[in-house]
Each structure stands twice: as C-alpha cells, then as structure tokens.
C-alpha cells in the first residue's frame, strides 16, 4: 500500500515545486508551499508503514501508533496552518507588494528546476543506496525539491520569497528524512520541525525590521546598510 501512495504523492510534490517556481503572486506561492507541506506531512505515516517488516501488518504498538499520529498532526498543522498563517500576517503587517519579482526572470529558474529534477533522477540512480527503500523516487524528489528551494532562495528579490524558498528547501530535507523514519527518535523529529519554525520566525522578525527601515521589503536595499 505504501508503494501505491508514496510515489504519486512524491510526483505531486514535485509538480508543486514547478508551480511554486512559476507563479509570482505571493498568496499563490504561500498556498503552494503550504500544500506541499501538508502533502509531505501526510506522506510521513505512509513512508513509516512502508518500513515495517512484511507479513505483520498489525505489529504497530500502541505507543508507536500514537507517536505516528501525533507527529503527523504536528507536521501538518505547523507546515500547513501555522507557518502560512504567520507568513500571511507578515505580508499584511509589512504591507509588501503582492507579487514576487526575480533577479533573472521567472523562466530561467523554472527551466533550471526542470533540468535539476531530471538530473536528480538520473544522478540518484548511480548512488549506492541500501536496498528496500519504499520508493525509487524518494531520493530524487528530495534532491529536486532542495534544488528548487535553492533556486527560489537565490533568485527571488523579496525577503518573503526567500523565506518561502527556504521552506521549500526544508521540505526537500524532510523528504530525505522520510528515508530515516525508523532510525530517528521523536525528539529529533520534533526538533527538525521546530527548527524550521524558529527559522521562519527569525526571518519574519528580520523581515519586519527591513520593512520598517525601508519602504519596501526588497533585499537589494540591505547592501546599502553599513556595519
């Protein structure tokens, strides 16, 4: 069952990458990032089930099940509700322009994202991976999402666009984490999510300061600051 759901889920996650790279209206990008986060959160238990030993479908202990449900809910709520809400609020308070702009235009990063995804799939086939992973798309989609997040991070001119790129990048790392689901203890898992939350929080504060110092939240103004 996990193979049936994991692959389509990852394909949709990759398509959302392209969507995020294409659209420029800030709200749509935030929705796209939130959707990707929720999707990955829902993939978490799916990937988890895929690593259970075969033949014993009901071997999940109560504690493990509760932990699984709790973590899934936490990830979905943080990625799909709290962070988008926070970003929307930052948008409203800082009164940013509703469109993202890019230093090199929209199309080159989109094309690079496409070729990056292709390269990730080709590259991951040559990696010496441990057998038995639930999906052959797990590594490539992690790499591709990191690439897309990085492209977003490095080309968008607005601070908020960079925050969104950072979240996409983190989503890619999260997909990597799906591989290690069995080995990672609960504190580390929560730590990763909280890490992201704190990161967004800090960036939000910086972002507010930037918008208070300058009429608009374009990071190009930062270069005019003196030590």
């Amino acid at each position: 069952m996990s193979e049936l759901l994991l692959d389509p889920g990852l394909v949709v996650a990759l398509l959302i990458n392209f969507y995020i790279l294409t659209v420029t209206r800030l709200k749509q990008v935030v929705y796209g990032v939130a959707l990707q986060g929720v999707l990955l959160g829902l993939l978490y238990p799916v990937a988890h089930a895929g690593f259970l030993p075969r033949g014993e479908p009901h071997s999940l202990e109560t504690v493990t099940t509760l932990r699984l449900i709790g973590l899934t809910v936490a990830i979905v709520v943080i990625k799909g509700w709290i962070i988008p809400r926070f970003l929307m609020k930052a948008m409203r308070i800082a009164d940013v322009r509703s469109r993202l702009t890019s230093t090199v235009g929209i199309v080159p990063p989109l094309l690079m994202g496409g070729f990056g995804t292709a390269a990730a799939i080709v590259f991951s086939r040559s990696l010496p991976l441990a057998g038995g992973h639930a999906s052959h798309l797990l590594i490539p989609s992690a790499l591709a999402t990191v690439v897309c997040g990085f492209l977003m991070l490095s080309t968008r001119r607005e601070a908020l666009g960079q925050v969104l790129g950072y979240i996409v990048l983190e989503n890619g790392i999260f997909i990597f984490g799906l591989l290690l689901v069995e080995a990672v203890p609960i504190m580390v898992e929560l730590g990763i999510v909280l890490d992201l939350f704190v990161g967004v929080f800090v960036m939000g504060i910086i972002f507010n300061h930037v918008s208070r110092a300058f009429p608009e939240a374009s990071i190009e103004h930062l270069s005019s600051l003196k030590e």
Binding site: Y19, T22, I106, V107, L110, L111, G114, I121
Partner: peptide, 17 residues
C-alpha cells in the same frame, strides 16, 4: 510564455519519470 514553458517542464518531467 511562462505557462507554456511550465507545460514544457511538466512534459520533460513526464519523460524523465
């Protein structure tokens, strides 16, 4: 052009997939 290139990237992705 953005939408068309987006469609192109999706098709490329389909080929690679």
């Amino acid at each position: 052009p953005k939408l068309l290139i987006g469609a192109g990237v999706v098709s490329l992705f389909a080929v690679i997939l």
